[in-house]
Design a binder for these strands. Structure first.
Lengths: 209, 209
DNA sequence: CAATATACTGAACATTTGTTTAAAAATCAA
DNA sequence: TTGATTTTTAAACAAATGTTCAGTATATTG
């Protein structure tokens, strides 16, 4: 169990968490000072040292904005929402166009959906049923640079969107379903007809009715 | 419509997004240089200027780690949101007690979660895997007066919570799993050891990692 | 072709940001 | 009360980080 925080330490810790969630980066020491009307940077600095000693944050000396919050994902006090587009039209050749013709947006509670999602899309077939992903589910997609083999991705092929397992081998991209009755698709890397939107980070399914 | 990015600009833009997602803060210019083996900070710097001019990022002069990705804007309005408790202890004899010892709350966007949910609970076993409900999923429960046979319900038996199919026949309540290896449970109607919390209206599953 | 944008290097410079030291006041527990 | 810890101020310094200028090379476009 971590050592308890003083009132001031907790105030500053909460501020750091809130700032980080809202701004996608931690505050500088001087920004903390401004928030709490500190006249000296050492006011905030010494509290940071205490927070680090007690195990709430980790820092690297001399690096700007280098407060790393421990157990960031277990945080239950913060309520923060991110609004992401729900896309409904698909265009592999021009992915940006998909974001101009939306089916509205969804607000997600970042306490639960904690991977900086990029957009949402409705699952259009049962090709991944074996993985518990069904037609009609809403898939939350997180864009990432490197996608590992085996990851479940959202792919756009021409004007169709699909959820499939991803495999890249010898510059060939395979989109592999998990259920029978669906074909594995094969593409050359760089094929303009294929756009990998990102990894599926969450599934939301409506059950009732 | 945003102006298209060059290959290099896109590489760097993707790197910034990935870094930000993984580190909860944007990279410094020198960190970008290191990633791409640039010898001069201006190599990255000039690309940042291009990304800003094309509307993909926003920056503030002279601030460390001040790349703001335009897609990542958080929304703080609370319209159409409902906050529900996430329960983690179970007590069939005294259900109200479960709501005093919470594991926090979740905010749901009522555009998606549109059935007046009552509370949320983590799925504790794989007894409903055939229905695509896995251990670790978050189940959103909606209380309702009439529960039809076949509905998927959240039931509390003594001090344990379960997701099962519901069946009421001849004043006997059956809790039926969908996967092999799990037993059907049978109760007399009115049994104090059983509390039906409501129907499962949504399932949220984290996939990545 | 010329003009323009992109992609980089190199070196200095400016500003922000983190760090240290010294000290005073406030708080809290023994 | 006494002593330890916390909180805060103040000032100077060190390091990181962003910015600018000058220049080369390559591709792209009209």
């Amino acid at each position: 169990m971590k050592e308890a925080l003083t009132k001031r330490q907790n105030q500053i810790f909460e501020f750091i968490k809130k700032y980080t969630i809202e701004n996608h980066k931690p505050p500088t020491i001087r920004e903390i000072c401004k928030k709490f009307n500190f006249k000296s940077t050492n006011s905030a600095y010494s509290v940071l040292k205490a927070l680090e000693r007690k195990g709430y944050i980790q820092r690297t000396n001399l690096k700007a904005r280098n407060i790393n919050i421990n157990d960031f994902k277990l945080d239950k006090t913060q309520i923060d929402l991110k609004e992401i587009p729900l896309i409904s039209t698909f265009d592999a050749q021009n992915p940006l166009r998909m974001f101009t013709n939306l089916n509205g947006t969804i607000k997600l509670d970042m306490k639960i959906f904690d991977t900086l999602p990029s957009f949402a899309v409705e699952v259009t077939d049962d090709g991944m049923q074996k993985d518990g992903i069904f037609k009609g589910d809403i898939a939350i997609i997180t864009q990432s640079l490197e996608i590992k083999n085996g990851s479940i991705v959202f792919a756009v092929i021409k004007n169709e969107g699909l959820i499939r397992h991803y495999k890249n081998e010898n510059n060939e991209i395979y989109l592999i379903p998990s259920s029978r009755g669906y074909e594995t698709l094969k593409f050359k890397e760089g094929d303009k007809n294929l756009w990998i939107g990102g990894e599926v980070s969450f599934i939301i399914r409506k059950l009732k009715r």
